[in-house]
Write a protein that binds this DNA or RNA. Structure first.
Lengths: 186, 186
DNA sequence: CTATATTATTGGACTCAGTCTATTAATTCG
DNA sequence: CGAATTAATAGACTGAGTCCAATAATATAG
């Protein structure tokens, strides 16, 4: 078996992330160096780059799995009998979403302002969502491609806007689905 | 007079930009170093940072003046007698816009994919537009703030989507206003 | 038990962006 | 001519990200 050969793994994304978030809260994202993160977790800088390809990727770890879940949910819709329209499919996914499943990175999204690489990597996540929505709309009725891309982009923007607004609402915020329903016009 | 004292300026943003775009087309954005740009224009790396605070700022120079023009146009609307709604105000601005006034950077927006700092700086331009739209909508009717922010975000996204689609349409593309009218739903 | 293959960890060198400081060069004004 | 002012520059520094060579820890084959 190939998985049990060679020197066993000691480092993991989770261990590094744990150390990183502690330091981020202490000194902020920007002034926390990769060297510090790695050493705090008990590893070397080189090992950090065995687990993550950048400091920003570490930041988005949990968010990426949430996005993957959303994409799977959309795929499941499409392969079902009567797929919902995009708006309804998003609302269904959002309704099941408790405050406790929101990634640390999203809860602390204000950190984004502090660093260029965070903005860039955040934007690339938004673009990934956008492509998923484009594909979803393409499966539905055949619209003018310009309008289709515009609608996907609008949906992405409204989703992100709603998410950040919901997070800003603080601990007393209700269900995300309800909040999203207000934002997703048409 | 303070403007005529001291050593006269030789370097300018325009000179550096000219050299940069030539190199970008030759070797791409990422593999063109600031040192190369500065030396090609006949200056030192240090002087580059007297004119631009980053490599990305150089890229967006013309685009920033276009955005400023749009913002002025919106401000003029708001201070007039009967301000148009946001959609109409954007369409009016877009209609006067010929292919020749599109910045080099936007025409070559595919370079964005090559580099993180370009994505980040592009995203910050989009956010700037978004804030302008938020302010514009706030002057109009008083809507639910969630819906207002969502609509501003949607408008920003549709505008960018339409712009890139229009650029992709190539030399035969018609007026931008017409293209934008298809994308700006509701 | 020993040799070997395999994989993880590490150190170190390198490039480039961006920041900062001190120095030098070119000009105007008194 | 000298002083003040401002531009250009060199050079050192930090930190991200890449790359490679060396080493350490395991499994397995002989």
């Amino acid at each position: 078996m190939a998985s049990s050969a060679g020197r066993p793994r000691r480092a993991s994304q989770e261990l590094l992330q744990e150390a990183a978030f502690e330091l981020f809260q202490l000194r902020g994202y920007r002034s926390t160096t990769i060297e510090q993160i790695a050493r705090t977790a008990g590893f070397s800088r080189a090992t950090f780059f065995n687990c993550f390809s950048s400091k920003a990727d570490l930041f988005w770890l949990e968010t990426d799995t949430l996005i993957a879940a959303l994409r799977e949910s959309l795929d499941a819709q499409l392969s079902g009998e009567n797929p919902l329209d995009l708006r309804s499919a998003l609302l269904r996914f959002a309704t099941g979403l408790g405050s406790d499943r929101i990634p640390w990175a999203l809860q602390n999204y204000r950190l984004l302002e502090a660093s260029d690489d965070l903005v860039a990597s955040g934007a690339s996540r938004a673009l990934e969502l956008n492509w998923a929505f484009v594909r979803y709309l393409q499966q539905g009725g055949s619209i003018d491609p310009i309008a289709l891309h515009a609608q996907a982009a609008a949906t992405t923007a409204m989703l992100v806007s709603a998410l950040l607004g919901w997070i800003d609402a603080g601990v007393g915020r209700g269900d995300f689905g309800e909040h999203l329903a207000h934002a997703l016009i048409h």
